[in-house]
């Protein structure tokens, strides 16, 4: 297996920041590639699955580029890091765009902050949830190594995941409600925030990922 970290490129947003941040923290001999090639993703030692934009477009692009299977395969067998939309589409379904079926790795929904039921609690909170917010660590995990519980990361999103299985939850954040900002199971770790934009702690998390063997 190569010592390559593949950043999955499916045309959803700018991946330069993700790859540059990874290049900043990898060890000698590790290589970062940005790829939309299923075989390159299959050959990589670690996979980063970023994404931004709308759920509908993300799922469409993944299917058009025939990368949905490659992403799921990677999530089953090697160290895998989902970021932002790359976390959300791991769930079974999103409420965005009048309802979108997602990759269904984990049962659960992706919900809107602006939902009418929530609105009363949200009051004057702005959407998107944009800026630096605290992440409470809910599992001890190799990717939290050298990152203090409760430190802030950079978020920008209007939807959040609501997994059915509570044992997936590895981090939570408060924004009007307490929502799940990190999930982790086996070789998969996925965050709603952007580690590549979260200064020192974000780089630390990427560094931890670049050295992680996929064991929780």
């Amino acid at each position: 297996m190569s010592s390559t970290i593949a950043v999955v490129d499916y045309g959803m947003g700018n991946l330069r920041s993700v790859s540059k941040a990874l290049e900043h923290v990898v060890q000698d001999g590790q290589r970062v590639i940005v790829s939309s090639d299923a075989s390159e993703i299959a050959d990589a030692e670690r996979v980063v699955f970023p994404g931004q934009g709308a759920a509908r477009d993300c799922m469409q692009q993944l299917k058009d580029l025939k990368l949905d299977e490659a992403v799921l395969q990677a999530a089953h067998e090697k160290p895998f890091l989902g970021i932002c939309m790359g976390m959300q589409v791991l769930m079974s379904h999103s409420e965005e765009n009048q309802g979108i079926d997602c990759l269904n790795l984990y049962p659960g929904d992706v919900r809107a902050f602006s939902d009418s039921a929530l609105k009363a609690q949200m009051q004057s909170l702005k959407v998107p949830h944009m800026g630096w917010n605290k992440v409470a660590q809910k599992q001890s995990h190799p990717l939290w190594s050298d990152i203090e519980d409760g430190n802030r990361f950079y978020f920008v999103h209007s939807y959040y995941v609501d997994p059915e299985d509570e044992t997936l939850v590895a981090g939570t954040t408060e924004y009007g409600i307490e929502f799940v900002s990190v999930i982790a199971r086996d070789n998969v770790f996925a965050a709603q925030f952007h580690p590549e934009k979260s200064a020192h702690d974000g780089l630390q998390l990427l560094k931890n990922f670049s050295r992680w063997n996929g064991q929780p």
Partner: peptide, 25 residues
């Protein structure tokens, strides 16, 4: 590695894309 915004002279979707691809958020 913190968010970057670029303004000034942004007039077309191409301008927008060029800035985002360069690393602006």
């Amino acid at each position: 590695f913190i968010p970057l915004t670029v303004g000034g002279g942004i007039r077309t979707v191409d301008d927008v894309r060029r800035m985002l691809n360069a690393g602006a958020d």
